[in-house]
Design a protein around this nucleic acid. Structure first.
Lengths: 369, 369
DNA sequence: TATTAGCACTCGAAAGGCAAGAGTGCCAAC
DNA sequence: GTTGGCACTCTTGCCTTTCGAGTGCTAATA
């Protein structure tokens, strides 16, 4: 496997192999490429080139007398340099926009809806994850309902609102509730979950003259809410679409990957959750480039969107290494842009614009020294 | 296929066939039954009996010289009369209780958690659905945050609370917010979503002297909330566990069923959603007893739980007809009882009690005239 | 020197044939 | 009614053969 510059013709041939293989899932032979017409030479010439591409590590043969199949390095080269940046048709963009609007209108959990949408669009399993944020409480209200009941309303720094009905065995008077509310507003706003110490709770309890454990009930809800808000949640959908792919015709294999995915396995390298692709970038992880053992012969395409409040969420797609990178990247990118526009802090590009695709990934040579 | 009374011995043999087949997924032969020791007779005798059971429609042979496999009618007989009502071990019940408590403590959506739990326990795909209720609004609050922002808080008749932050382009004064709140409390409580007519909105708008469209924003949230609360939601999880079952080794088949399930396909006969099994009942639908074409060679086991507020939710499990009915029924039943105890209106049996299992289903003969 | 045609070779996939084994049905004996 | 025995059937697994796609190499050609 020698290191040498790759000629223009080799690039064309490599691209042809990758694209044909993506289409058919069968090893592609010299004859098929010759006939495809992109090159003006005979199959013999192609054979020579193919042999060299194998030598260089971009292709491999399942067995001696079969066609060629791209290696992860071959896909990487394709994704980085050869792939044509696909533009979506007008109908496609309109369709996506329409469905996106619809999803976001439903009261339904945004993130799960988006993940489902991504999966439907690409026909691969898709995942969406919310950004890691550090929310605090911005405002605190208690609504007195009746002697045994009140409602806690928390407004978070992310501008979302959480509420809960509390039902008590004992009766409280309205003044106590008011007193508690102002104490919490004073003491619990702007702090994180681990700053809600037993000490703080205790002193609030005393200040409120609370002998019924009301304070701790409320404090528990505060902790719960903050913890939940700060935990990035992942949502995976369409795992079953894996079964469309011939590489998962073996139930064992399909099952392994599917349960890894539904089990909430890490997709991005740990620590990189926040460091995913930036705006207008697409990150592609091909086969062994993935850290998780279960993903070593699958590929992942990830885009990020502006989730508002200076945080970014991720949406991605998982499939076999023989994935239609071009189409998936285009769709994800458009979807992410649409999401940013709707959720984000405002400086997103206007609707309908195709933002340029910056594909970020490893250098194709780094695996080969 | 003659109609005749089924002898005790035939019952024993049928049960043995079903259980062995559930265990091994292979057609079971006369020898295996003879050796299993439940009967004191030779394989030849068993062969005679088996032949008659085939005649009667309880068993069938995949091909002439293979063992026997239960027909749906055979399973039905097994479920209705032969199956021993399995009791869970102490460890199992403790495990379930522990995990149930944990699930319900998480702020997390209860229903999805329960569905996941059911799937984990049984190792089949599981679904949970909330009951169809008709919630109304019980109480209405608006919290003024600043000139451009207020919070809507709705308390529903189901005693759940929904809230939303509203951000306005124009500024409102605090009095307007207060006025709106009392108008909504007067006019919008106790009514259903379709009673929120444009007329009502319009008159409220005028009464509030609202020229900024505030009223319709709030009304829209009311409609949204009521509609959502009244829509039964289904949650399916663990679809991928289907792949554990040898009958789904064909990816085609597995994929068909899985996408039917994730697509939110109907499980119960339409119109029967509310008429599922009652308390302490288990409903079993075997193969062709299902209405959905996609379920015709799968089985479904369903229990219902008291979801409070006089409504019942469902939890169920889907698998091949060769399903471990006994174990699944026991687990689901226990799970449903546990849920009822925690969510329900109170008259549920005390923790730890094994409630009796009433298995409801079709008469085994009805398919055979 | 790069390309091409031709040809022998390789190897997997598909098709056919054979033996083994499991299970049945039936008969005759108990 | 039950049982042992036996011939029969049909699947499964295995082996062999065939077929064909695709290769690598060589020699001829531009």
């Amino acid at each position: 496997m020698e290191k040498m510059a790759i000629s223009e013709r080799k690039k064309k041939i490599l691209a042809a192999v990758v694209e044909e293989y993506i289409r058919t899932a069968e090893p592609v032979g010299s004859k098929a490429i010759a006939q495809s017409g992109a090159l003006n030479c005979s199959s013999a010439t192609i054979r020579n080139e193919l042999a060299e591409l194998v030598n260089m590590g971009y292709l491999e043969q399942p067995h001696t007398s079969a066609g060629r199949v791209p290696t992860p390095m071959g896909y990487r080269m394709y994704v980085n340099e050869l792939m044509e940046r696909q533009k979506l048709s007008l109908e496609e963009t309109e369709d996506i926009n329409r469905r996106l609007n619809q999803k976001l209108q439903e009261l339904d959990d945004t993130i799960s809806g988006v993940s489902r949408l991504a999966s439907q669009l690409t026909d691969y399993p898709a995942l969406a994850l919310t950004a890691q944020v550090s929310a605090t409480i911005k405002r605190f209200d208690l609504i007195y309902v009746d002697a045994n009941t009140f409602i806690i309303v928390l407004m978070l720094s992310t501008n979302s609102v959480k509420s809960k009905l509390v039902h008590l065995p004992l009766s409280v008077d309205e003044n106590m509730v008011r007193r508690l509310a102002s104490l919490f507003n004073a003491g619990f706003t702007g702090i994180t979950a681990d700053q809600v110490t037993p000490l703080l709770i205790h002193s609030t309890e005393r200040a409120a003259d609370d002998t019924m454990g009301l304070t701790s009930v409320v404090a528990a809800f505060v902790i719960e809410t903050l913890t939940e808000a700060n935990t990035p949640t992942a949502f995976i959908s369409g795992e079953n679409r894996l079964l469309n792919q011939p590489e998962f015709k073996d139930p064992e294999k399909a099952h392994k990957l599917m349960s890894y995915l539904s089990g909430g396995g890490y997709i991005l390298p740990p620590g990189e959750e926040g460091a995913g692709p930036g705006a207008d970038e697409i990150r592609v992880l091909i086969g062994p480039e993935n850290v998780a053992e279960e993903l070593k012969d699958s590929s992942v395409v990830i885009a990020s969107y502006d989730a508002g409040d200076n945080t970014r969420g991720l949406i991605g797609v998982v499939g076999p290494t023989r994935m239609d990178y071009s189409a998936v990247a285009a769709k994800l990118s458009f979807l992410a842009a649409g999401l940013s526009r709707r959720l984000g802090s405002g400086e997103a590009p206007p609707e309908g614009m195709h933002n340029k695709l910056i594909i970020k990934g490893d250098d194709p040579n780094e695996h080969r020294g």
